[in-house]
Write a protein that binds this DNA or RNA. Structure first.
Lengths: 135, 135
DNA sequence: TTGCGTGCAAAGGTTTTGCATGGCA
DNA sequence: TGCCATGCAAAACCTTTGCACGCAA
Protein backbone atom coordinates (compact mmCIF):
# COMPACT_ATOMS: atom_id res chain seq x y z
CA UNK A 1 0.00 0.00 0.00
CA UNK A 2 1.31 3.45 -0.82
CA UNK A 3 1.01 6.66 1.12
CA UNK A 4 2.21 8.43 4.18
CA UNK A 5 2.10 7.40 7.77
CA UNK A 6 1.10 9.58 10.64
CA UNK A 7 3.74 9.34 13.33
CA UNK A 8 4.32 10.96 16.68
CA UNK A 9 7.40 12.80 15.45
CA UNK A 10 5.73 14.21 12.39
CA UNK A 11 2.79 15.36 14.47
CA UNK A 12 5.05 16.96 17.06
CA UNK A 13 7.03 18.90 14.46
CA UNK A 14 3.93 20.21 12.78
CA UNK A 15 2.24 21.14 16.05
CA UNK A 16 5.29 22.99 17.25
CA UNK A 17 5.50 24.93 14.00
CA UNK A 18 1.85 25.85 14.25
CA UNK A 19 2.12 26.97 17.85
CA UNK A 20 5.20 29.03 17.27
CA UNK A 21 3.94 30.52 14.00
CA UNK A 22 7.24 32.24 13.48
CA UNK A 23 10.53 31.43 11.81
CA UNK A 24 12.27 28.51 13.38
CA UNK A 25 15.47 26.63 12.84
CA UNK A 26 15.69 22.84 12.81
CA UNK A 27 17.95 23.13 15.85
CA UNK A 28 15.26 25.00 17.78
CA UNK A 29 12.74 22.35 16.92
CA UNK A 30 15.05 19.65 18.20
CA UNK A 31 15.68 21.43 21.48
CA UNK A 32 12.05 22.23 22.17
CA UNK A 33 10.73 18.81 21.31
CA UNK A 34 13.41 17.13 23.40
CA UNK A 35 12.42 19.32 26.33
CA UNK A 36 8.82 18.35 25.79
CA UNK A 37 9.79 14.74 26.18
CA UNK A 38 9.52 13.85 22.50
CA UNK A 39 12.16 11.51 21.22
CA UNK A 40 13.33 12.80 17.88
CA UNK A 41 16.49 13.24 15.85
CA UNK A 42 17.72 16.08 13.71
CA UNK A 43 17.66 13.89 10.65
CA UNK A 44 13.99 13.21 11.12
CA UNK A 45 13.31 16.91 11.54
CA UNK A 46 15.04 17.69 8.27
CA UNK A 47 13.22 14.91 6.49
CA UNK A 48 9.89 15.94 7.93
CA UNK A 49 10.41 19.59 7.07
CA UNK A 50 11.42 18.64 3.57
CA UNK A 51 8.19 16.78 3.06
CA UNK A 52 6.05 19.46 4.63
CA UNK A 53 7.75 21.91 2.34
CA UNK A 54 6.90 19.89 -0.74
CA UNK A 55 3.32 19.68 0.44
CA UNK A 56 3.30 23.43 0.87
CA UNK A 57 2.48 23.24 4.55
CA UNK A 58 5.66 24.91 5.68
CA UNK A 59 7.99 27.27 3.95
CA UNK A 60 11.73 27.32 3.88
CA UNK A 61 13.59 30.58 4.06
CA UNK A 62 17.26 31.34 4.18
CA UNK A 63 18.50 34.05 6.44
CA UNK A 64 21.39 35.84 4.85
CA UNK A 65 23.64 35.82 7.88
CA UNK A 66 24.82 32.28 7.48
CA UNK A 67 22.86 31.17 10.53
CA UNK A 68 21.22 28.38 8.59
CA UNK A 69 17.74 27.97 7.26
CA UNK A 70 14.47 28.84 8.90
CA UNK A 71 11.14 27.18 8.47
CA UNK A 72 7.70 28.61 9.04
CA UNK A 73 4.21 27.21 9.19
CA UNK A 74 2.03 28.57 6.45
CA UNK A 75 -1.62 29.23 7.11
CA UNK A 76 -3.44 29.55 3.83
CA UNK A 77 -4.80 32.96 4.69
CA UNK A 78 -1.47 34.60 5.39
CA UNK A 79 0.10 33.90 2.03
CA UNK A 80 -0.50 37.31 0.61
CA UNK A 81 0.82 40.77 1.25
CA UNK A 82 3.18 39.50 3.87
CA UNK A 83 6.82 40.41 3.48
CA UNK A 84 9.71 40.05 5.86
CA UNK A 85 12.22 42.69 6.73
CA UNK A 86 15.43 41.58 8.33
CA UNK A 87 17.78 43.99 10.03
CA UNK A 88 21.37 43.29 9.05
CA UNK A 89 22.61 44.92 12.24
CA UNK A 90 20.65 43.32 15.06
CA UNK A 91 19.12 40.41 13.18
CA UNK A 92 15.57 41.37 14.09
CA UNK A 93 12.92 39.97 11.78
CA UNK A 94 9.90 42.15 11.07
CA UNK A 95 6.66 40.85 9.64
CA UNK A 96 5.10 43.37 7.36
CA UNK A 97 1.59 43.41 6.08
CA UNK A 98 0.80 46.41 4.03
CA UNK A 99 -1.33 47.37 1.07
CA UNK A 100 1.54 49.13 -0.57
CA UNK A 101 3.30 45.86 -1.07
CA UNK A 102 0.28 44.40 -2.77
CA UNK A 103 0.62 47.25 -5.22
CA UNK A 104 4.23 46.41 -5.73
CA UNK A 105 3.36 42.84 -6.53
CA UNK A 106 0.89 43.80 -9.20
CA UNK A 107 3.27 46.38 -10.62
CA UNK A 108 6.07 43.89 -10.98
CA UNK A 109 3.68 41.37 -12.42
CA UNK A 110 2.36 43.76 -15.04
CA UNK A 111 5.50 45.62 -15.99
CA UNK A 112 8.08 42.92 -15.51
CA UNK A 113 6.15 39.70 -15.96
CA UNK A 114 7.34 38.37 -12.64
CA UNK A 115 5.08 36.80 -10.03
CA UNK A 116 6.39 37.50 -6.56
CA UNK A 117 6.34 34.87 -3.89
CA UNK A 118 6.20 37.12 -0.87
CA UNK A 119 6.59 34.37 1.66
CA UNK A 120 9.96 33.36 0.33
CA UNK A 121 11.30 36.85 0.11
CA UNK A 122 13.37 38.52 2.77
CA UNK A 123 14.12 42.18 2.41
CA UNK A 124 17.36 43.25 4.03
CA UNK A 125 18.15 46.58 5.54
CA UNK A 126 18.40 48.45 8.80
CA UNK A 127 15.65 48.81 11.37
CA UNK A 128 14.87 52.16 12.95
CA UNK A 129 16.61 51.29 16.22
CA UNK A 130 19.90 50.42 14.60
CA UNK A 131 19.61 53.35 12.25
CA UNK A 132 19.32 55.64 15.26
CA UNK A 133 22.31 54.10 17.00
CA UNK A 134 24.63 54.46 14.05
CA UNK A 135 23.75 58.05 13.43
CA UNK B 1 53.98 49.60 8.81
CA UNK B 2 50.24 49.12 8.65
CA UNK B 3 48.08 48.79 5.60
CA UNK B 4 47.12 46.42 2.85
CA UNK B 5 49.24 44.72 0.30
CA UNK B 6 48.42 44.34 -3.34
CA UNK B 7 48.85 40.75 -4.34
CA UNK B 8 48.32 38.75 -7.47
CA UNK B 9 45.49 36.75 -5.91
CA UNK B 10 43.61 39.74 -4.66
CA UNK B 11 43.90 41.43 -8.03
CA UNK B 12 42.76 38.31 -9.84
CA UNK B 13 39.67 37.92 -7.69
CA UNK B 14 38.66 41.52 -8.10
CA UNK B 15 39.26 41.50 -11.84
CA UNK B 16 37.22 38.38 -12.28
CA UNK B 17 34.35 39.85 -10.30
CA UNK B 18 34.45 43.01 -12.38
CA UNK B 19 34.53 41.13 -15.66
CA UNK B 20 31.70 38.84 -14.72
CA UNK B 21 29.60 41.57 -13.13
CA UNK B 22 27.07 39.06 -12.02
CA UNK B 23 26.51 36.89 -8.98
CA UNK B 24 29.27 34.43 -8.41
CA UNK B 25 30.07 31.74 -5.90
CA UNK B 26 33.48 31.31 -4.29
CA UNK B 27 33.67 27.93 -5.97
CA UNK B 28 33.19 29.49 -9.40
CA UNK B 29 35.95 31.95 -8.69
CA UNK B 30 38.29 29.14 -7.71
CA UNK B 31 37.55 27.16 -10.85
CA UNK B 32 37.91 30.06 -13.24
CA UNK B 33 41.08 31.42 -11.72
CA UNK B 34 42.66 27.98 -11.65
CA UNK B 35 41.81 27.58 -15.33
CA UNK B 36 43.40 30.94 -16.00
CA UNK B 37 46.59 29.69 -14.49
CA UNK B 38 46.30 31.61 -11.24
CA UNK B 39 47.43 29.74 -8.17
CA UNK B 40 44.89 30.39 -5.47
CA UNK B 41 43.09 28.58 -2.67
CA UNK B 42 39.49 28.68 -1.52
CA UNK B 43 40.53 30.05 1.84
CA UNK B 44 42.18 33.02 0.19
CA UNK B 45 39.09 33.64 -1.88
CA UNK B 46 36.90 33.72 1.20
CA UNK B 47 39.32 35.99 3.00
CA UNK B 48 39.63 38.30 0.04
CA UNK B 49 35.89 38.47 -0.46
CA UNK B 50 35.39 39.18 3.20
CA UNK B 51 37.71 42.16 3.00
CA UNK B 52 36.26 43.46 -0.22
CA UNK B 53 32.87 43.18 1.43
CA UNK B 54 33.95 45.26 4.39
CA UNK B 55 35.35 47.84 2.01
CA UNK B 56 32.05 47.87 0.19
CA UNK B 57 33.60 46.85 -3.11
CA UNK B 58 31.68 43.62 -3.37
CA UNK B 59 28.40 42.54 -1.90
CA UNK B 60 27.44 39.28 -0.34
CA UNK B 61 24.07 37.78 -1.04
CA UNK B 62 22.48 34.58 0.02
CA UNK B 63 20.46 32.61 -2.46
CA UNK B 64 17.58 30.95 -0.74
CA UNK B 65 18.01 27.62 -2.42
CA UNK B 66 20.82 26.45 -0.23
CA UNK B 67 23.35 26.76 -3.01
CA UNK B 68 25.68 28.77 -0.85
CA UNK B 69 26.53 32.44 -0.93
CA UNK B 70 27.02 34.62 -3.94
CA UNK B 71 29.20 37.65 -4.30
CA UNK B 72 28.88 40.50 -6.73
CA UNK B 73 31.03 43.41 -7.74
CA UNK B 74 29.44 46.72 -6.91
CA UNK B 75 29.93 49.70 -9.14
CA UNK B 76 29.25 52.82 -7.16
CA UNK B 77 26.59 54.01 -9.54
CA UNK B 78 24.43 50.92 -9.38
CA UNK B 79 23.77 50.95 -5.67
CA UNK B 80 20.30 52.38 -5.88
CA UNK B 81 16.98 51.20 -7.20
CA UNK B 82 18.43 47.88 -8.11
CA UNK B 83 16.60 44.80 -6.91
CA UNK B 84 16.98 41.20 -7.85
CA UNK B 85 14.27 38.80 -8.79
CA UNK B 86 15.03 35.13 -8.66
CA UNK B 87 12.82 32.56 -10.30
CA UNK B 88 12.23 29.62 -8.00
CA UNK B 89 11.51 27.38 -10.98
CA UNK B 90 14.38 27.86 -13.37
CA UNK B 91 16.78 29.72 -11.10
CA UNK B 92 17.09 32.68 -13.43
CA UNK B 93 18.22 35.89 -11.77
CA UNK B 94 16.74 39.11 -13.06
CA UNK B 95 18.25 42.51 -12.39
CA UNK B 96 15.57 45.10 -11.98
CA UNK B 97 15.99 48.82 -12.09
CA UNK B 98 12.77 50.67 -11.76
CA UNK B 99 11.48 53.89 -10.28
CA UNK B 100 8.63 52.12 -8.63
CA UNK B 101 11.01 50.38 -6.32
CA UNK B 102 12.53 53.65 -5.27
CA UNK B 103 9.05 54.59 -4.17
CA UNK B 104 8.79 51.41 -2.23
CA UNK B 105 11.99 52.16 -0.40
CA UNK B 106 10.84 55.56 0.69
CA UNK B 107 7.43 54.21 1.67
CA UNK B 108 8.90 51.55 3.89
CA UNK B 109 11.32 54.04 5.33
CA UNK B 110 8.60 56.52 6.20
CA UNK B 111 5.81 54.23 7.30
CA UNK B 112 7.81 51.42 8.80
CA UNK B 113 11.09 53.03 9.83
CA UNK B 114 13.08 50.47 7.91
CA UNK B 115 15.92 51.33 5.56
CA UNK B 116 16.10 48.84 2.75
CA UNK B 117 19.38 47.56 1.48
CA UNK B 118 18.35 46.76 -2.06
CA UNK B 119 21.58 45.12 -3.01
CA UNK B 120 21.25 42.47 -0.36
CA UNK B 121 17.66 41.69 -1.12
CA UNK B 122 16.49 38.92 -3.39
CA UNK B 123 12.83 38.76 -4.27
CA UNK B 124 11.59 35.27 -5.04
CA UNK B 125 8.86 34.29 -7.41
CA UNK B 126 8.18 32.95 -10.86
CA UNK B 127 9.37 34.47 -14.10
CA UNK B 128 7.06 34.90 -17.06
CA UNK B 129 8.52 31.94 -18.92
CA UNK B 130 7.94 29.48 -16.11
CA UNK B 131 4.57 30.97 -15.38
CA UNK B 132 3.55 30.29 -18.96
CA UNK B 133 4.80 26.73 -18.89
CA UNK B 134 2.91 25.80 -15.77
CA UNK B 135 -0.35 27.22 -16.96
C1' DT C 1 63.28 43.59 7.95
C1' DT C 2 58.39 43.83 9.10
C1' DG C 3 54.08 42.02 9.02
C1' DC C 4 50.32 41.12 5.84
C1' DG C 5 48.82 37.51 2.48
C1' DT C 6 48.79 32.76 1.16
C1' DG C 7 48.36 27.69 1.06
C1' DC C 8 47.41 23.70 3.31
C1' DA C 9 45.06 21.09 6.46
C1' DA C 10 42.09 20.74 10.18
C1' DA C 11 38.05 22.28 12.57
C1' DG C 12 33.15 23.89 12.92
C1' DG C 13 28.49 23.97 11.62
C1' DT C 14 24.61 22.65 8.79
C1' DT C 15 22.29 19.40 5.96
C1' DT C 16 22.11 14.83 3.68
C1' DT C 17 22.46 9.86 3.30
C1' DG C 18 23.02 4.62 4.32
C1' DC C 19 21.54 1.05 6.93
C1' DA C 20 19.29 -1.59 10.35
C1' DT C 21 15.39 -1.18 13.31
C1' DG C 22 10.81 0.28 14.81
C1' DG C 23 6.03 1.49 14.01
C1' DC C 24 1.71 2.48 11.31
C1' DA C 25 -1.87 0.55 8.48
C1' DT D 1 2.66 -8.60 6.69
C1' DG D 2 4.36 -4.70 3.86
C1' DC D 3 6.33 -0.35 3.82
C1' DC D 4 7.29 3.91 5.44
C1' DA D 5 9.52 6.50 9.20
C1' DT D 6 13.08 6.82 12.56
C1' DG D 7 17.75 6.87 14.89
C1' DC D 8 22.30 6.71 14.73
C1' DA D 9 26.47 7.52 12.65
C1' DA D 10 29.01 8.71 8.81
C1' DA D 11 29.40 11.57 4.88
C1' DA D 12 29.03 15.68 2.17
C1' DC D 13 29.20 20.65 1.94
C1' DC D 14 30.30 25.23 2.88
C1' DT D 15 32.96 28.31 5.57
C1' DT D 16 36.34 29.54 9.06
C1' DT D 17 40.70 29.17 11.50
C1' DG D 18 45.70 27.92 12.94
C1' DC D 19 50.19 27.78 11.51
C1' DA D 20 54.32 28.12 8.91
C1' DC D 21 56.04 30.18 4.86
C1' DG D 22 56.23 33.63 1.07
C1' DC D 23 56.08 38.06 -0.63
C1' DA D 24 55.09 43.18 -0.85
C1' DA D 25 56.72 47.47 0.96
Amino acid sequence: MRGEYSTKQRGAVLEFLKDASRHITPQEILTHLRESGVNISLATIYRTLDKLCTEGVVRKMTMGDGAGSCYQYVAESTCHSHFHLKCVECGKLIHLSCDFLANMESHIHKDHGFTISAGKTVIYGKCSDCEAINK
